[in-house]
Design a protein around this nucleic acid. Structure first.
Length: 611
DNA sequence: TGCAAAAGGG
């Protein structure tokens, strides 16, 4: 009964989060409601004794130990040195504890050098030591070394256990190698002597989620619920987060209430995922409800929770309000971090306010270690959007001088900028440079370059680049094909575009709305309007609904081909589906009306009435 | 003593 009640409640509230679809005043109103709420929350927080939860927790978590707590690498090295000088040598367990703590601080290379010192001083090692070592190599993207440590187990006659295998699986996931991780998992299930535990399940479920395979993740969750190894908070939260990322917020909320019915209490991470999910869809009311709910349960929002709010406000253009939230964070001793400031900076960049963006960047620079590759890339992206390539390139040099390594994303941003301003030579030069610096181009890099080449009518270079990409075994996705098909259409090679389009399924790809729109536009451009109309029907049949772009494209296509007879019917169809003509199409239709070519009764149906 | 979950840039 309770389960049903909660489900109903969730359904009711989550459906309300879809009520904002008209993004006008309503949305703004909800935004301010939300801000009022955040302000109230701070007032509530203010009335509480200062950080009540935190202080109790530190007391509770203080473990009994004779070694000082390690908070930095230097401490670790000192304690380690002292331990190495003790006679008799402390047990391997005590060394493991230090290694584990340093690993928790994410100083993976430090762990490896400490491990090497153990070797020199002839401290033995056990399964746990080697598992920590594997984990460190995994996080350093050195799977090869991880696997050679595994070899060491066998040489020393040690038997890897669940943790070892789970660590290895996680290592594969860090390299996006879900298949290999699943291989280990399946072997464990089949093997019998080393059964997966809840962490192993959580790891492979995360792998499925990474690949966007929520179904497989949920299937495994159901298996766990039936079996002996019950899912815990992490397992549920992993799937909830993945559903939120895929904007399946309703499913996420359902799983969330299901989890609570099983007596598993959510934490700040679960709530942050959900708030992020609903914010992405503009569900301010729902975000407020969740925020309210978590605070009422004494689960306090942290920097990440607030960063979600700051980022969302920035993305909808409400940077002023976002700044307000940051102000409140500071007031409440929640220290804004690099992510907070980078989001704000991005918000200003999106509005083209580069002066303000630069000011925040200056603030971050003055705070020392706050600036990272992402913050540089964000500012670079801002300059690229404004076509200020010199400023963008200056930042690239500046970051390199500071020892920050520009990554693929940084280069992609700059390549996009050069393509936008039509400087394809500079783009190509930078493309070679990034590879010389060891940054591997990804599918998006190729998409950016191909798009730039096609739009600048350099089709043969584009095709050459596409072949290069295939040679690198990068899997071309539908985006790449959309660019190529559009490029062929621009070059008036409609026949080749058709061939590529109809060959998509044989490459295991499904055309999306954009693909259809591109192809329909190309066919109209080539005067093949009846074929375009056939495609319009076909896309619907194949479960890919046309959007307002589709109709605008095809209507314009018919008008431009002087085939005005079919236009009236198409406009009717468009209006019936709730779409409207854009400014360009409307102009053409009004022009036709002047020539008595379409039914004047359709005029009031056009949305842009000012024309 | 070791292994899994949250937020930012194209």
């Amino acid at each position: 009964m309770l389960k049903m009640m909660i489900r109903t409640t969730t359904a009711a509230t989550s459906s309300s989060c879809y009520c904002w679809s008209s993004r006008g005043m309503n949305c703004l109103h909800s935004n301010s409601t939300f801000l009022v709420f955040v302000t109230n929350y701070f007032a509530f927080f203010h009335s509480q004794p200062s950080k009540p939860i935190k202080s109790t927790r530190t007391q509770l978590e203080q473990p009994k130990r004779d070694l000082p707590k390690i908070t930095n690498v230097e401490d670790a090295f000192n304690v380690f040195d002292r331990m190495l000088q003790m006679r008799p040598l402390p047990s391997v367990v005590r060394f493991n504890k230090i290694l584990g703590q340093v690993a928790k601080l994410k100083h993976y290379s430090a762990v490896i050098s400490l491990y090497n010192q153990m070797g020199v001083s002839r401290v033995g090692h056990d399964v746990c030591t080697l598992t920590i070592l594997i984990n460190c190599y995994c996080h350093l993207n050195q799977m090869g070394f991880s696997l050679s440590v595994l070899g060491k187990f066998f040489k020393l006659g040690l038997e890897p256990n669940v943790s070892t295998f789970t660590t290895l699986m996680n290592g594969f996931l860090l390299e996006n190698r879900v298949v290999e991780a699943a291989g280990i998992f399946n072997k464990m299930i089949a093997g019998g002597n080393c059964q997966p535990d809840v962490v192993t399940f959580g790891t492979i479920i995360r792998g499925f989620c990474m690949k966007g395979n929520n179904r497989a993740a949920i299937q495994l969750l159901r298996k766990m619920e039936e079996g002996a190894c019950k899912p815990n908070l992490v397992v549920y939260s992993t799937i909830i987060d993945s559903l939120c990322k895929d904007t399946l917020v309703d499913d996420a909320l359902n799983l969330f209430s299901e989890m609570m019915c099983k007596g598993i209490a959510p934490n700040v991470i679960t709530y942050t995922s959900l708030i992020h999910g609903v914010c992405k869809l503009g569900g301010w009311k729902e975000a407020t409800r969740l925020f309210n709910e978590m605070v009422s349960k004494n689960i306090f929002p942290n920097v990440c929770t607030f960063n979600v709010l700051v980022d969302t406000l920035c993305k909808v253009g409400m940077v002023g309000e976002a700044e307000g939230v940051v102000g409140m964070m500071i007031e409440r001793d929640i220290e804004p971090d690099t992510v907070t400031y980078t989001s704000l900076m991005d918000g200003f960049c999106l509005r083209g306010e580069m002066g303000k963006a630069k000011k925040i960047f200056g603030l971050m620079l003055s705070k020392g270690s706050m600036v990272n590759v992402v913050s540089y890339s964000t500012l670079i992206n801002g300059y690229c959007r404004r076509k200020m390539m010199d400023e963008a390139m200056t930042l690239l040099w500046e970051m390199s001088r500071k020892g920050l390594v520009p990554d693929t994303v940084t280069y992609n941003t700059l390549l996009g900028g050069y393509c936008k301003v039509g400087k394809l030579g500079d783009a190509q030069k930078l493309f070679s440079e990034m590879q010389a610096c060891g940054q591997l181009p990804d599918v998006q890099t190729y998409a950016i370059l191909l798009d730039g080449l096609c739009k600048n009518r350099k089709l043969s270079t584009a095709i050459q680049l596409f072949k290069e990409m295939e040679g690198k075994k990068l899997d071309a996705d539908i985006v790449i094909y959309n660019i190529l098909i559009a490029g062929l259409c621009i070059a008036e090679k409609i026949e080749s575009a058709r061939e590529l389009f109809f060959g998509l399924s044989s490459r295991g790809l499904q055309p999306n709305v954009r693909t259809y729109n591109i192809m329909i536009k190309g066919l109209c451009f080539g005067g093949r309007t009846s074929e375009a109309e056939k495609l319009l029907i076909q896309m619907e049949e194949k479960g890919c609904s046309p959007n307002d772009c589709t109709y605008n494209i095809i209507i314009r296509g018919f008008i431009n081909n002087n085939e005005t007879v079919r236009v009236t019917g198409l406009i009717q169809q468009m209006v019936e589906k709730g779409f409207s003509a854009d400014a360009w199409t409307t102009e053409l239709i009004v022009e036709l009306l002047g020539k008595d070519k379409v039914d004047p009764a359709l005029l009031p149906l056009m949305q842009n009435r000012e024309l």
